[in-house]
Simulated scan of single mutants.
Amino acid sequence: MQNPTSADIQRVRDFLTDLQARICTALEQQEIQGGGTATFETDDWQRPEGGGGRSRVLQNGTVIEKGGVMFSHINISKLPASATERHPQIAGAKAQAMGVSLVIHPNNPNVPTSHANVRLFVAEKEGQEPIWWFGGGFDLTPFYPNPEDVSAWHQTAHDLCAPFGENVYPEHKKWCDDYFYLKHRDEQRGVGGLFFDDLNQWDFEKCFEYIQAVGNGYLEAIIPVFQRNQNKPFTQAQRDFQLYRRGRYVEYNLVYDRGTLFGLQTGGRIESILVSMPPLAGWSYRPEWEENSPEKHLTDYWLKPQDWLKLSD
């Protein structure tokens, strides 16, 4: 397996920093179109152990209530349990990890929350060949879904996967469904998308091409979702339901998300790790929704893994 050179790692870093900038610019345009003026604030930071990052956060916007688009490139002197449970052979190895991770929480309940992540991990242990892999994906968490958004989201995912093999989309779609599952609630976090980890079965260049397609695919998929929904009217009851469902998002990220656990176990920067938390969320005791209501339809239909491409048939 070809190992990445320092030049390869720099190319990945250059792509990630450019991706972060392009996503922020595109989302700021949505703020302008919605009559807002909020922009992403930039916060550059360094870690004592080595490396650092650039956090870009938009808060209290007209279209986006809170959004974080984070780049980091960190050095790790000794890998934690969250990184080595699947790779015991690199326990205690030094490593570097870089990636862009984002979560966008819109104001309007008709616009879904969205998440994306693309990353590279390289571990080195004395006496062993370096081990590397890519990971990432994107997923959509709607409150009031519509077939056009869900179908288009998955069509974008399908199409970007197609050049890499006919099995990539179904495998990474299923991986996403399995990963973003709240076991204690017995429900999906949303309608899914793509998720993958430990990607190194192709050569480095092809793997890199794939994460570029995924990162660019998120931007291609999410902007039309905003454009179709951000100006729709909504009621206070719909806003309350949005906050209730955001509670599920918080539960998932704090209980199951491997990226959150990895950041906490490596002594990461807490503000950047927890930027995925919404500014407001709610929990109600055993709420009941009317039969045939959109709120009940969300869990009865939309939060069940399905072949979403068939919605457009």
Score class of each variant (00 low, 15 high):
W133L: 09
P106G: 08
A95L: 05
V122R: 01
H115E: 07
A97K: 06
M98Y: 01
G137D: 06
L120S: 03
K94N: 04
H115D: 05
N117C: 12
G136V: 11
T113H: 09
W133K: 00
A95R: 03
R119S: 12
N117L: 15
A93W: 06
G99C: 13
I104T: 04
H105V: 01
V100A: 15
S101N: 14
H115S: 10
V111E: 04
G137L: 14
P106E: 14
K94A: 06
H115R: 03
V118I: 15
P130Y: 04
E126W: 01
H115A: 11
P112Y: 08
V111R: 03
I104N: 11
N110C: 14
L120M: 09
P130N: 01
G136F: 10
H105W: 02
L102G: 12
A123Y: 00
A116Q: 07
A123G: 02
P112R: 04
N108F: 07
L120P: 00
P130Q: 07
T113C: 09
V122D: 00
Q96W: 04
W133I: 01
F121Q: 03
A93T: 03
F138Q: 13
V122K: 02
H115P: 14
M98V: 10
H105L: 05
F138S: 06
P112S: 09
A95E: 04
W132H: 11
P109K: 09
L102E: 05
A123F: 01
F121D: 00
F138K: 02
R119I: 15
N108I: 13
L102M: 15
K94E: 07
S114V: 13
Q96S: 15
S101K: 10
L120V: 06
F121H: 01
F138I: 14
Q96G: 09
A93E: 07
G99N: 10
Q128Y: 02
E124Q: 10
I131M: 10
G137Q: 05
V122L: 15
V118A: 10
A116H: 10
L120I: 13
T113A: 13
A123S: 14
G137S: 10
V118L: 02
A116F: 15
H105F: 12
L120H: 01
G127M: 05
